[in-house]
């Protein structure tokens, strides 16, 4: 299987590569369109600020390529947020893969949300063998609102969407690569989709 992690300069992707290595898969880090198109599975990571990450995507024209991909794509954290319509962070237009907007938590709660939280209302093959109320590790200040493409929700200030699915596109707000055995299970599920 050819597994690719989109490397567009946004964040720590080494841990994702290592997580797959622990599962016995070598992932290629690349921003080369041909490499990405010829992959069986694609990881779209992201850490940092939305507008600058989007600018980097545009520079390499990956903003055009990613929405056209036909193979399973998994967005992680900011990657998931960039796959949405719009993010309040830096008033950024996203890739529009998920029909939902991304907003900031209010100051009624500590921002960023940092740590382990539960995921519920699990509705996808991505969560095969993962129980309701499983803990995942999250670090984020912005969240996706409730929407029909939701495949998992979490509670912080209110219920929000912590995973999304639309055709071949998947997105998770949490970091499966840092979420212990449950996170590794999810990555394995993605590889087996």
């Amino acid at each position: 299987m050819k597994l690719t992690i989109v490397n567009y300069g946004a964040g720590n992707i080494k841990s994702i590569q290592f997580a797959f290595q622990r599962l016995g898969y070598e992932a290629i880090l690349t921003d080369n369109p041909e490499e990405i198109i010829s992959s069986d599975k694609i990881i779209f990571p992201g850490v940092g600020e939305a507008s600058s990450a989007m600018t980097k995507l545009k520079l390499s024209e990956l903003d055009q390529l990613i929405p056209q991909l036909k193979q399973p794509v998994l967005g992680i954290c900011l990657g998931m947020q960039l796959m949405c319509n719009h993010s309040q962070e830096g008033d950024t237009n996203g890739l529009g893969i998920f029909d939902v907007n991304v907003k900031r938590f209010s100051n009624k709660v500590k921002v960023p949300q940092m740590g382990w939280n539960t995921i519920t209302n699990l509705k996808s093959g991505l969560f095969k063998g993962i129980k309701e109320e499983e803990y995942m590790y999250l670090v984020h200040s912005y969240y996706a609102e409730q929407c029909k493409e939701s495949i998992a929700t979490s509670h912080y200030e209110f219920d929000y969407v912590s995973a999304l699915e639309n055709d071949n596109f998947y997105g998770v707000q949490f970091h499966p690569e840092k979420s212990g055995a449950a996170g590794e299970k999810l990555l394995k599920n993605f590889l087996e989709l």
Binding site: Y137, E177, K178, S179, G180
Partner: peptide, 8 residues
């Protein structure tokens, strides 16, 4: 550590 540990 990053290679082998699955928590932050």
């Amino acid at each position: 550590v990053a290679e082998q540990v699955n928590i932050p």
